[in-house]
Amino acid sequence: MNPENDLIISQRLAKNFQRNFRERLIEFGLLCSGLIAIFITLAIVYVLVSEAIPFFQHVSIIDFLTDTVWTPNYSIKHYGILPLISGTLTTTGIALIVAVPLGTITAIYLSEFASHKVREIIKPILELLVGVPTVVFGYFALMLVTPMLQKIYPDLTTFNMLGPGIVMGIMIVPYIASVAEDSMRAVPMSMREGAYAMGATRFQTAIRVITPAAISGIVAAYILAISRAVGETMIVAIAAGQQPNFTFNPVESAATITSYIVSVALGDLEHGGIGYQSIFAAGLTLLIMTLLINILGHAVRKKYAERY
């Protein structure tokens, strides 16, 4: 027991203040960047709620949720959100009918069938579609898709939900394909080998083994696509007509929540007027819808959580 040695050892094992301080600093920095996202979300909720409260002092929530007419800018004012919800749901529904099969099949092809070379070429091209501004998609719907649909169905009006719905579907295909493909590729090779060793073909392996194994990621892709479609603004604002009709008929024109917000917000609105406040009520409705979709999606994903 040499006291000199003891001293050295205790010094060696002493806490390194410099290192501890650096670690704390990094931890604090990481926490701050996380908090910014939460703060912005809370700020959005605060703005929406605080502006929506005066609106609901004028209009009862029951009228808002049950009235089937939405005419905040007419002399006879009605504030029923249902026409906007029906427009939103119909265009989203059409988009999903297009995007879910197309996106899923693309994902299966890219993950299970395409060679490495083909995948490396196709995937970036597909992802390029995400970068196209939605205004361009809007005019694509109005100037190309709707006229083409009119050739098949002559009674179709210039502004309708079908054209923008289809274009919106095409727009979200890469979202579904990309996320679903990632989750299918994450299925371990041992699962594929097991299926092939049973004498399964590529198709049988892809459909009966890989797809169920990756279902949680595939569902996540669908949820992302739904949120994207519900929140899409420009395509429907340009090509669906901005006419709040309470209808689920895709050949009619309609307004969605987002297209109403953008059309009103672009006009001259008196700050603090009821028309101005109605934007926030509509925005709050949209936020709640998206929230519900996300909660549902989370529940579904939990149910089918990956377990391999």
Binding site: P188, S190, M191, E193, G194, A195, Y196, A197, M198, G199, A200, T201, R208, V209, P212, A213, I215, R307, Y308
Partner: peptide, 18 residues
Amino acid sequence: IEVRMRISMVFQKPNPFP
């Protein structure tokens, strides 16, 4: 595929399907 139908395989790590 015909070969695998007659010669089956069990792997190192159990790999049941989901």
